[in-house]
Simulated assay, not measured.
Amino acid sequence: MTTVKKRSPEGRILVVGGYGAVGATVTSRLAERFPGRVLPAGRDGERARRLGGVRADVGDPEDFRRVLDELGDVGAVVLCVEPADASIARACLERGIHLVDVGASYRLLDAVSGLHALAVESGATAVLSVGVAPGLTNLLALRAHRALGGADRLDLTVLLGSGERHGTDAVRWTVAGLAEPVTDRPRKVSLPGHGVRTAHPFPFSDQHTLRGTLGVPRVTTRLCLDSPLLTAALFAVRRTGGARREGLRRLLTAAFTRVHLGGDGFALRADAYDGDGHAAFVLAGREQSRVTGLVAAEVAGEVLTGALPTGVHHIERLPALADLPERLGADGVTVRRAAPGEGE
Protein backbone atom coordinates (compact mmCIF):
# COMPACT_ATOMS: atom_id res chain seq x y z
CA MET A 1 0.00 0.00 0.00
CA THR A 2 1.15 3.54 -0.70
CA THR A 3 2.49 5.33 2.38
CA VAL A 4 -0.21 7.67 3.69
CA LYS A 5 0.72 11.30 4.03
CA LYS A 6 -1.35 13.74 6.06
CA ARG A 7 -3.32 15.80 3.54
CA SER A 8 -3.05 19.55 3.69
CA PRO A 9 -6.42 21.34 4.07
CA GLU A 10 -5.17 23.48 1.19
CA GLY A 11 -4.65 20.52 -1.14
CA ARG A 12 -5.91 20.63 -4.70
CA ILE A 13 -9.29 19.29 -5.81
CA LEU A 14 -9.25 16.96 -8.82
CA VAL A 15 -12.63 16.96 -10.62
CA VAL A 16 -12.60 13.91 -12.89
CA GLY A 17 -14.94 14.51 -15.80
CA GLY A 18 -14.58 18.18 -14.94
CA TYR A 19 -15.59 19.40 -18.40
CA GLY A 20 -18.74 17.24 -18.78
CA ALA A 21 -22.42 17.95 -18.17
CA VAL A 22 -22.09 17.46 -14.40
CA GLY A 23 -18.38 18.12 -13.92
CA ALA A 24 -18.40 21.59 -15.45
CA THR A 25 -20.82 22.72 -12.73
CA VAL A 26 -18.72 21.08 -10.02
CA THR A 27 -15.57 22.74 -11.36
CA SER A 28 -17.05 26.23 -11.59
CA ARG A 29 -18.83 26.12 -8.21
CA LEU A 30 -15.79 24.79 -6.35
CA ALA A 31 -13.52 27.31 -8.09
CA GLU A 32 -15.66 30.11 -6.64
CA ARG A 33 -15.22 28.73 -3.13
CA PHE A 34 -11.65 27.42 -3.41
CA PRO A 35 -9.94 29.66 -5.99
CA GLY A 36 -6.74 28.31 -7.49
CA ARG A 37 -7.23 24.81 -6.09
CA VAL A 38 -9.54 23.13 -8.63
CA LEU A 39 -8.11 20.93 -11.40
CA PRO A 40 -10.54 19.64 -14.05
CA ALA A 41 -9.44 16.25 -15.35
CA GLY A 42 -10.59 13.59 -17.76
CA ARG A 43 -9.74 11.12 -20.48
CA ASP A 44 -9.53 13.91 -23.07
CA GLY A 45 -6.24 15.43 -21.97
CA GLU A 46 -6.29 18.26 -24.49
CA ARG A 47 -9.73 19.38 -23.39
CA ALA A 48 -8.76 19.19 -19.72
CA ARG A 49 -5.52 21.12 -20.28
CA ARG A 50 -7.37 23.90 -22.12
CA LEU A 51 -9.24 24.45 -18.85
CA GLY A 52 -6.03 24.41 -16.81
CA GLY A 53 -6.38 20.77 -15.80
CA VAL A 54 -4.74 17.41 -16.42
CA ARG A 55 -5.41 14.11 -18.16
CA ALA A 56 -6.69 11.39 -15.85
CA ASP A 57 -8.38 8.27 -17.19
CA VAL A 58 -10.47 6.21 -14.76
CA GLY A 59 -10.35 3.39 -17.30
CA ASP A 60 -6.62 2.97 -16.54
CA PRO A 61 -6.19 2.61 -12.76
CA GLU A 62 -2.39 2.42 -12.92
CA ASP A 63 -2.20 5.65 -14.88
CA PHE A 64 -4.66 7.26 -12.46
CA ARG A 65 -2.44 6.32 -9.52
CA ARG A 66 0.53 7.79 -11.35
CA VAL A 67 -1.34 11.09 -11.85
CA LEU A 68 -2.19 11.28 -8.15
CA ASP A 69 1.42 10.61 -7.15
CA GLU A 70 2.87 13.08 -9.67
CA LEU A 71 0.52 15.84 -8.55
CA GLY A 72 1.37 15.04 -4.96
CA ASP A 73 -0.91 17.56 -3.27
CA VAL A 74 -4.40 16.34 -4.20
CA GLY A 75 -6.61 16.65 -1.14
CA ALA A 76 -9.87 15.50 -2.70
CA VAL A 77 -11.19 13.83 -5.84
CA VAL A 78 -14.70 14.39 -7.19
CA LEU A 79 -15.63 11.54 -9.54
CA CYS A 80 -18.14 12.76 -12.12
CA VAL A 81 -17.59 9.73 -14.36
CA GLU A 82 -18.15 6.12 -13.38
CA PRO A 83 -15.19 3.72 -13.26
CA ALA A 84 -15.58 0.02 -14.01
CA ASP A 85 -14.80 -1.00 -10.41
CA ALA A 86 -13.64 0.27 -7.02
CA SER A 87 -9.94 0.52 -7.94
CA ILE A 88 -10.08 4.30 -8.46
CA ALA A 89 -11.72 4.80 -5.08
CA ARG A 90 -9.09 2.55 -3.51
CA ALA A 91 -6.29 4.56 -5.15
CA CYS A 92 -7.66 7.71 -3.53
CA LEU A 93 -8.44 6.35 -0.10
CA GLU A 94 -5.18 4.45 0.38
CA ARG A 95 -3.41 7.78 -0.17
CA GLY A 96 -5.60 9.58 2.36
CA ILE A 97 -7.37 11.52 -0.42
CA HIS A 98 -11.02 12.41 0.20
CA LEU A 99 -13.55 11.19 -2.37
CA VAL A 100 -16.94 12.44 -3.56
CA ASP A 101 -18.51 9.90 -5.92
CA VAL A 102 -21.35 10.87 -8.27
CA GLY A 103 -21.68 7.24 -9.44
CA ALA A 104 -25.16 5.74 -9.75
CA SER A 105 -24.58 1.98 -10.11
CA TYR A 106 -25.38 0.03 -6.97
CA ARG A 107 -22.80 -2.70 -7.55
CA LEU A 108 -20.01 -0.13 -7.76
CA LEU A 109 -21.24 1.87 -4.76
CA ASP A 110 -21.49 -1.32 -2.74
CA ALA A 111 -17.90 -2.20 -3.64
CA VAL A 112 -16.68 1.25 -2.59
CA SER A 113 -18.61 0.92 0.69
CA GLY A 114 -16.39 -2.07 1.40
CA LEU A 115 -13.41 0.30 1.66
CA HIS A 116 -14.71 1.91 4.86
CA ALA A 117 -11.97 0.52 7.10
CA LEU A 118 -9.29 1.64 4.64
CA ALA A 119 -10.70 5.18 4.61
CA VAL A 120 -10.81 5.36 8.41
CA GLU A 121 -7.23 4.09 8.64
CA SER A 122 -5.97 6.67 6.15
CA GLY A 123 -8.00 9.56 7.61
CA ALA A 124 -10.03 10.04 4.44
CA THR A 125 -13.74 10.65 3.91
CA ALA A 126 -15.72 9.23 0.98
CA VAL A 127 -19.32 10.25 0.29
CA LEU A 128 -21.51 8.12 -1.97
CA SER A 129 -25.01 8.58 -3.46
CA VAL A 130 -24.24 12.14 -4.46
CA GLY A 131 -26.48 13.87 -6.99
CA VAL A 132 -30.19 13.97 -7.78
CA ALA A 133 -31.00 10.23 -7.97
CA PRO A 134 -29.30 8.87 -6.00
CA GLY A 135 -28.66 11.79 -3.67
CA LEU A 136 -31.59 14.13 -3.18
CA THR A 137 -33.90 11.12 -3.40
CA ASN A 138 -32.04 9.57 -0.46
CA LEU A 139 -32.45 12.74 1.60
CA LEU A 140 -36.18 13.00 0.81
CA ALA A 141 -36.58 9.33 1.76
CA LEU A 142 -34.85 10.01 5.06
CA ARG A 143 -37.29 12.86 5.81
CA ALA A 144 -40.36 10.82 4.96
CA HIS A 145 -39.06 7.87 6.98
CA ARG A 146 -38.44 10.06 10.03
CA ALA A 147 -41.79 11.84 9.68
CA LEU A 148 -43.50 8.50 10.37
CA GLY A 149 -41.10 7.52 13.10
CA GLY A 150 -40.01 4.64 10.89
CA ALA A 151 -41.45 3.26 7.66
CA ASP A 152 -41.87 -0.28 6.40
CA ARG A 153 -42.15 0.81 2.76
CA LEU A 154 -40.72 3.62 0.64
CA ASP A 155 -41.83 4.58 -2.85
CA LEU A 156 -39.50 7.00 -4.64
CA THR A 157 -40.37 8.70 -7.92
CA VAL A 158 -38.04 10.51 -10.33
CA LEU A 159 -39.26 12.65 -13.23
CA LEU A 160 -36.54 13.87 -15.59
CA GLY A 161 -36.77 16.56 -18.23
CA SER A 162 -36.45 14.93 -21.64
CA GLY A 163 -35.56 18.28 -23.19
CA GLU A 164 -32.34 18.55 -21.18
CA ARG A 165 -29.06 17.71 -22.92
CA HIS A 166 -27.84 14.89 -20.71
CA GLY A 167 -24.31 13.56 -21.10
CA THR A 168 -23.83 10.45 -23.26
CA ASP A 169 -22.73 8.35 -20.27
CA ALA A 170 -25.91 9.27 -18.38
CA VAL A 171 -28.10 8.36 -21.37
CA ARG A 172 -26.21 5.09 -21.87
CA TRP A 173 -26.69 4.22 -18.18
CA THR A 174 -30.43 4.92 -18.42
CA VAL A 175 -30.89 2.81 -21.53
CA ALA A 176 -28.91 -0.04 -19.96
CA GLY A 177 -31.24 0.11 -16.95
CA LEU A 178 -34.14 -0.92 -19.18
CA ALA A 179 -32.58 -4.36 -19.50
CA GLU A 180 -32.57 -4.93 -15.73
CA PRO A 181 -35.36 -7.21 -14.42
CA VAL A 182 -38.12 -5.60 -12.33
CA THR A 183 -40.88 -7.07 -10.18
CA ASP A 184 -42.79 -3.97 -9.07
CA ARG A 185 -45.55 -2.35 -11.12
CA PRO A 186 -45.93 1.15 -12.59
CA ARG A 187 -47.59 3.68 -10.32
CA LYS A 188 -49.56 6.88 -10.86
CA VAL A 189 -48.17 9.69 -8.76
CA SER A 190 -48.60 13.44 -8.42
CA LEU A 191 -45.42 15.40 -9.07
CA PRO A 192 -44.91 19.15 -8.50
CA GLY A 193 -45.43 21.13 -11.68
CA HIS A 194 -46.31 18.06 -13.74
CA GLY A 195 -49.59 16.71 -12.38
CA VAL A 196 -50.32 12.99 -12.18
CA ARG A 197 -47.88 10.83 -14.14
CA THR A 198 -47.31 7.12 -14.61
CA ALA A 199 -43.86 6.16 -13.33
CA HIS A 200 -42.20 2.81 -14.01
CA PRO A 201 -39.89 0.76 -11.76
CA PHE A 202 -36.26 1.48 -12.57
CA PRO A 203 -32.97 0.21 -11.03
CA PHE A 204 -31.74 3.39 -9.34
CA SER A 205 -29.21 2.56 -6.64
CA ASP A 206 -31.10 4.42 -3.88
CA GLN A 207 -33.70 1.64 -3.52
CA HIS A 208 -30.93 -0.87 -2.74
CA THR A 209 -28.93 1.44 -0.49
CA LEU A 210 -31.84 2.67 1.63
CA ARG A 211 -32.86 -0.83 2.65
CA GLY A 212 -29.60 -1.00 4.56
CA THR A 213 -29.02 2.58 5.69
CA LEU A 214 -32.60 3.21 6.86
CA GLY A 215 -33.57 -0.38 7.62
CA VAL A 216 -36.69 -0.23 5.43
CA PRO A 217 -37.50 -3.69 4.03
CA ARG A 218 -39.27 -2.57 0.86
CA VAL A 219 -38.03 0.31 -1.29
CA THR A 220 -38.91 0.94 -4.94
CA THR A 221 -37.77 3.77 -7.22
CA ARG A 222 -39.74 4.62 -10.35
CA LEU A 223 -38.92 6.79 -13.35
CA CYS A 224 -40.83 8.85 -15.90
CA LEU A 225 -39.92 11.64 -18.30
CA ASP A 226 -41.71 14.96 -18.57
CA SER A 227 -42.84 13.86 -22.05
CA PRO A 228 -45.55 11.17 -21.65
CA LEU A 229 -44.91 10.12 -25.27
CA LEU A 230 -41.22 9.48 -24.66
CA THR A 231 -41.97 7.75 -21.35
CA ALA A 232 -44.33 5.36 -23.12
CA ALA A 233 -41.81 4.73 -25.91
CA LEU A 234 -38.95 4.15 -23.47
CA PHE A 235 -40.77 1.55 -21.40
CA ALA A 236 -42.31 -0.11 -24.44
CA VAL A 237 -38.76 -1.11 -25.28
CA ARG A 238 -38.54 -2.87 -21.92
CA ARG A 239 -41.84 -4.70 -22.41
CA THR A 240 -40.81 -6.04 -25.80
CA GLY A 241 -37.41 -7.18 -24.53
CA GLY A 242 -35.60 -4.94 -27.01
CA ALA A 243 -33.41 -3.40 -24.30
CA ARG A 244 -31.59 -6.71 -23.93
CA ARG A 245 -30.18 -6.35 -27.45
CA GLU A 246 -26.91 -4.43 -27.51
CA GLY A 247 -27.45 -3.05 -31.00
CA LEU A 248 -30.82 -1.56 -30.06
CA ARG A 249 -29.35 -0.08 -26.87
CA ARG A 250 -26.74 1.73 -28.97
CA LEU A 251 -29.45 3.08 -31.28
CA LEU A 252 -31.56 4.24 -28.32
CA THR A 253 -28.56 5.93 -26.70
CA ALA A 254 -27.81 7.81 -29.92
CA ALA A 255 -31.47 8.79 -30.35
CA PHE A 256 -31.97 10.06 -26.78
CA THR A 257 -28.67 11.94 -26.94
CA ARG A 258 -29.85 13.84 -30.03
CA VAL A 259 -33.62 14.13 -29.53
CA HIS A 260 -34.78 16.68 -26.96
CA LEU A 261 -38.56 16.69 -26.68
CA GLY A 262 -39.77 18.33 -23.50
CA GLY A 263 -38.38 20.72 -20.92
CA ASP A 264 -35.46 20.76 -18.53
CA GLY A 265 -37.42 20.54 -15.28
CA PHE A 266 -37.19 17.57 -12.94
CA ALA A 267 -39.21 16.47 -9.92
CA LEU A 268 -38.71 14.00 -7.10
CA ARG A 269 -41.07 12.45 -4.60
CA ALA A 270 -40.56 10.18 -1.59
CA ASP A 271 -43.56 8.41 -0.03
CA ALA A 272 -43.17 6.54 3.25
CA TYR A 273 -45.75 4.09 4.60
CA ASP A 274 -46.17 2.31 7.92
CA GLY A 275 -49.48 0.53 8.28
CA ASP A 276 -52.08 3.24 7.71
CA GLY A 277 -49.52 6.01 8.18
CA HIS A 278 -48.23 7.99 5.21
CA ALA A 279 -45.79 10.88 4.79
CA ALA A 280 -44.41 12.34 1.56
CA PHE A 281 -41.92 15.00 0.50
CA VAL A 282 -41.56 16.50 -2.97
CA LEU A 283 -38.75 18.45 -4.64
CA ALA A 284 -38.55 20.27 -7.96
CA GLY A 285 -35.84 22.02 -9.94
CA ARG A 286 -34.39 22.62 -13.37
CA GLU A 287 -31.47 21.04 -15.22
CA GLN A 288 -30.85 17.77 -13.44
CA SER A 289 -27.20 17.58 -14.56
CA ARG A 290 -26.51 21.06 -13.19
CA VAL A 291 -28.18 20.27 -9.86
CA THR A 292 -26.25 17.01 -9.62
CA GLY A 293 -23.09 19.09 -9.97
CA LEU A 294 -24.28 21.55 -7.33
CA VAL A 295 -24.95 18.72 -4.89
CA ALA A 296 -21.48 17.29 -5.53
CA ALA A 297 -19.88 20.70 -5.00
CA GLU A 298 -21.74 21.22 -1.71
CA VAL A 299 -20.67 17.80 -0.48
CA ALA A 300 -17.07 18.39 -1.54
CA GLY A 301 -17.08 21.68 0.35
CA GLU A 302 -18.19 19.91 3.53
CA VAL A 303 -15.52 17.25 3.08
CA LEU A 304 -12.78 19.84 2.52
CA THR A 305 -13.70 21.87 5.59
CA GLY A 306 -13.44 18.77 7.78
CA ALA A 307 -17.12 18.76 8.73
CA LEU A 308 -17.64 15.07 7.93
CA PRO A 309 -16.34 11.94 9.68
CA THR A 310 -13.73 9.69 8.14
CA GLY A 311 -14.83 6.49 6.42
CA VAL A 312 -17.20 5.74 3.55
CA HIS A 313 -20.75 7.05 3.95
CA HIS A 314 -23.89 7.35 1.84
CA ILE A 315 -25.25 10.88 1.84
CA GLU A 316 -28.30 10.13 4.02
CA ARG A 317 -26.04 8.90 6.83
CA LEU A 318 -24.41 12.30 7.30
CA PRO A 319 -26.46 14.73 9.46
CA ALA A 320 -24.36 17.69 8.26
CA LEU A 321 -25.89 17.21 4.78
CA ALA A 322 -29.53 16.83 5.83
CA ASP A 323 -30.38 20.44 4.88
CA LEU A 324 -28.77 20.18 1.46
CA PRO A 325 -32.09 20.58 -0.45
CA GLU A 326 -32.68 23.93 1.27
CA ARG A 327 -29.15 25.09 0.46
CA LEU A 328 -30.05 24.76 -3.22
CA GLY A 329 -32.96 27.17 -2.90
CA ALA A 330 -30.97 30.01 -4.47
CA ASP A 331 -30.37 27.72 -7.46
CA GLY A 332 -34.09 27.22 -8.10
CA VAL A 333 -34.69 24.03 -6.10
CA THR A 334 -37.86 23.86 -3.99
CA VAL A 335 -38.72 21.24 -1.39
CA ARG A 336 -41.79 20.75 0.79
CA ARG A 337 -43.84 18.17 2.60
CA ALA A 338 -46.78 16.97 0.50
CA ALA A 339 -50.22 17.78 1.85
CA PRO A 340 -52.22 14.87 3.36
CA GLY A 341 -53.81 12.89 0.57
CA GLU A 342 -51.79 14.64 -2.15
CA GLY A 343 -50.90 12.06 -4.76
CA GLU A 344 -51.71 8.97 -2.66
Results as ranks from 00 to 15, higher is better:
6 K>P: 10
14 L>Y: 01
22 V>T: 14
28 S>L: 08
28 S>R: 10
32 E>A: 15
33 R>N: 01
43 R>S: 12
45 G>M: 07
48 A>C: 09
55 R>G: 15
55 R>E: 15
56 A>Q: 10
61 P>K: 03
72 G>V: 06
74 V>A: 07
77 V>L: 08
82 E>Q: 14
89 A>L: 01
98 H>C: 09
98 H>D: 15
105 S>L: 13
109 L>C: 03
110 D>L: 13
122 S>R: 11
132 V>Q: 01
135 G>S: 06
136 L>D: 05
136 L>A: 07
144 A>L: 09
147 A>E: 14
147 A>W: 03
153 R>L: 04
161 G>L: 04
162 S>C: 05
165 R>L: 12
177 G>L: 11
179 A>F: 03
181 P>H: 09
181 P>E: 14
181 P>G: 12
184 D>M: 04
188 K>A: 13
193 G>A: 10
195 G>I: 02
198 T>D: 05
200 H>R: 07
208 H>E: 15
212 G>L: 06
213 T>I: 07
217 P>R: 01
220 T>H: 00
223 L>V: 10
232 A>Y: 03
233 A>K: 00
234 L>Y: 11
234 L>W: 00
236 A>R: 11
238 R>S: 10
243 A>R: 01
246 E>D: 08
248 L>F: 08
253 T>Q: 04
254 A>E: 13
257 T>H: 00
263 G>C: 05
264 D>G: 14
273 Y>C: 07
276 D>R: 11
278 H>V: 13
279 A>M: 03
281 F>I: 05
283 L>F: 04
284 A>G: 13
285 G>M: 04
286 R>N: 05
290 R>P: 04
299 V>G: 07
300 A>P: 00
301 G>D: 12
313 H>P: 12
314 H>K: 06
316 E>Y: 04
318 L>D: 11
329 G>C: 04
332 G>Y: 02
338 A>E: 13
338 A>L: 14
340 P>F: 11
342 E>H: 06
342 E>K: 03
